[in-house]
């Protein structure tokens, strides 16, 4: 495993590592090679890097064509341009055809788009992809998980959407921690007063909230959910079975993402109160941490929301 710093560098590192032994791995850019930090891949493998220009629909279609010929193309670009501008191409030519192409949506969420503002902040992507049967959804929490998510995306058969950060996310996982195939990694077991389920790059904030709650004699369990709408949710359900209250936290719109997924699991398997902490409006420009705090993702705000949800039981 070569070294990397942020999630985008992790993406490039994973591709460079895989390219050494798998000639099928290709990178498709929608003028996003620099933004993806994948310039080293383009330089080292000019024949395995395809530039489509600022044309996301074209990039997804090119991936479909290449995958139909046995290659494993990775399209990496801003997650909203990928999942919204090229939504129909993903659905019809990737989901429906079940071709073996991989899609990495970068700079997801408020944290990912931060100073760029609403045009570059995307909190709808999971909700969109989740309605396309057959596309797996990986949501790595930090750079190390992003590396392993990219590697796993190449290994599994069929289309995968990886929701990745921008480099603003805090590293939580160790570099060697696997990308959990169960879709859940439990981080803290302080108690069963509530089960806090985190998704993506708010994990450090949820863990900090758990510490604040412990100081207030509310003892929670914290887990990271890294695969959404997967085939096997048994491990997630096992954790939910021990909880009287589940709180979901995600840098995504309140509809369609983790909260919706966990609510579905609860309704279908074991009714339990689910409180969702997520975005209910569009965002605005701002430094990543200030922005996340302002929109309800500060550890204190999360802790208060959990405490309040408990009193509503």
């Amino acid at each position: 495993m070569r070294a990397f710093s942020g999630s985008r560098e992790a993406f490039a590192a994973a591709l460079l590592d895989m390219a050494e032994y798998d000639e099928r791995v290709m990178v498709i850019s929608a003028d996003s090679l620099k933004a993806m930090r994948a310039v080293p891949f383009g330089e080292q493998y000019p024949n395995r890097y395809v530039e489509c220009g600022i044309a996301e629909q074209c990039a997804v279609d090119v991936a479909a064509g290449m995958a139909s010929c046995g290659l494993i193309p990775f399209v990496g670009t801003y997650c909203g341009f990928l999942t919204m501008r090229a939504c129909e191409q993903l659905r019809t030519f990737i989901g429906y055809t079940h071709l073996n192409a991989k899609f990495v949506g970068f700079n997801a969420g408020l944290l990912g788009g931060e100073r760029e503002g609403v045009t570059h902040q995307f909190y709808e992507d999971i909700g969109i992809v989740a309605t396309m049967p057959g596309i797996q959804i990986f949501t790595p929490a930090d750079p190390a998980q992003c590396y392993h998510a990219i590697r796993m995306a190449a290994e599994v058969e069929g289309p995968v959407y990886v929701r990745a950060g921008s480099g603003r996310e805090v590293s939580v996982y160790g570099n060697d921690a696997p990308f959990a195939t169960s879709g859940i990694t439990v981080w803290k077991r302080y108690g069963t007063d509530a089960l806090l389920l985190s998704n993506g790059f708010v994990l450090d904030r949820v863990l900090a909230a758990a510490e604040l709650l412990s100081q207030r004699e509310i003892h929670v369990t914290v887990a990271d959910i890294n695969i959404l709408y997967g085939d096997d949710a048994s491990e997630i359900l096992r954790e939910m079975a021990a909880a009287n209250l589940v709180v979901t936290v995600e840098d995504h719109n309140i509809n369609g993402g983790l909260g919706s997924y966990i609510s579905k699991l609860a309704c279908e398997n074991r009714p339990v109160r689910v409180h969702r902490i997520a975005l209910t409006s569009y965002g605005e420009s701002g430094p990543a941490n200030e922005l996340a705090d302002a929109y309800g993702f500060s550890p204190e705000a999360i802790a208060q929301a959990v405490a309040a949800a408990r009193t509503q039981q």
Binding site: V50, C52, Q57, V62, A63, S68, L71, Q89
Partner: peptide, 15 residues
């Protein structure tokens, strides 16, 4: 969609 998908197939041939 056909031209872009066809381009992908043509790229695959060259690759």
């Amino acid at each position: 969609n056909g031209i872009a998908i066809g381009a992908g197939m043509a790229i695959a041939a060259k690759a």
